[in-house]
């Protein structure tokens, strides 16, 4: 508990985050590249074809990782919004801003790959009456809304809080996406990967799991990079940024841990 409490207090300092996350950014970026290359090559070339869909099922190796991460990004936005509203933590606002474009891109890619797969498999690109498709489209609109809302409010602080409220309210959509295929009759099938079992053989799901993990690493990499960038932008007038730019950022950290 003590460590967690210290970490919580440290998170109050964007400067601490900036320095602490530098190696994480490098490692997660490298790991993302390695995992995504391995998983994609394995899935797209070596995994066996499906007995009904033949090769078109392979789009699952892009589709499932992107939509899973798109939803995780939104959950992270909701948590950031909560922390921002309750504790007014600066870093939460940085996270709330940094994660939006990545989540938007993942949702868009998920919808696009789903449509490309749906055309040969179902016989349609898009169905306006399918609850899974519509709730995912709402997720994309929530990302658009978060982006537009921040741009439309002049005061940075007010914009952050408005986005936090929208992020929190939009959280309601996440369980709807997840359970849409169980609560209602939909064209979209149920989950292949779930806690109760995996409905595909290991030679098919291992590359899928690798790509999912790789996509989470990419999420970590992109968000840390964007958050560090945003921290530099916001704190550009401070001495520690000037010191870091001169190349003695390390000493800046040490003097910080003393007080």
């Amino acid at each position: 508990m003590g460590i967690l409490k210290t970490l919580w207090h440290r998170l109050g300092s964007p400067r601490w985050f900036f320095h602490m996350m530098a190696p994480w950014q490098t490692w997660l970026g490298g790991l993302a590249l390695l995992l995504l290359l391995t998983g994609s090559f394995w899935g797209l070339v070596y995994a066996p074809q499906d007995y009904q869909q033949s090769h078109s099922f392979r789009i699952i190796y892009v589709h499932v990782p992107t939509v899973i991460v798109a939803q995780s990004v939104y959950m992270a936005l909701g948590v950031s919004g909560f922390v921002l509203l309750v504790w007014r933590m600066k870093l939460a606002d940085v996270a709330l801003k940094a994660m939006v474009p990545f989540g938007m891109a993942m949702t868009a890619l998920g919808l696009f790959t789903g449509a490309v797969w749906g055309r040969p498999t179902w016989g349609t690109w898009w169905e306006w009456t399918d609850a899974r498709l519509i709730s995912t489209l709402i997720l994309l609109f929530l990302y658009f809304g978060l982006y537009a809302l921040r741009e439309s409010i002049a005061s940075a602080e007010a914009a952050g809080r408005a986005c936090a409220v929208l992020a929190i309210v939009g959280l309601v959509n996440i369980p709807i996406i997840k359970y849409s295929v169980e609560w209602w009759t939909t064209l979209h099938q149920g989950e292949t990967l779930s806690m109760t079992g995996i409905k595909m053989p290991a030679e098919m799901y291992i590359p899928l799991l690798i790509n999912i993990l790789g996509m989470y690493c990419l999420f970590g990499y992109v968000v840390i990079a964007r958050m560090r960038n945003e921290i530099l932008r916001r704190e550009r007038e401070t001495n520690w940024v000037a010191a870091w730019l001169r190349g003695d950022g390390r000493t800046g950290m040490e003097s910080m841990s003393e007080h």
Binding site: P48, D50, Y51, Q52, W122, Q189, T192, P201
Partner: peptide
Amino acid sequence: REVLAKHDENYMPPELAD
């Protein structure tokens, strides 16, 4: 007017399906 195929959540290689 329209027929859509519904896919289920099961995936398997052809040999296994046989």
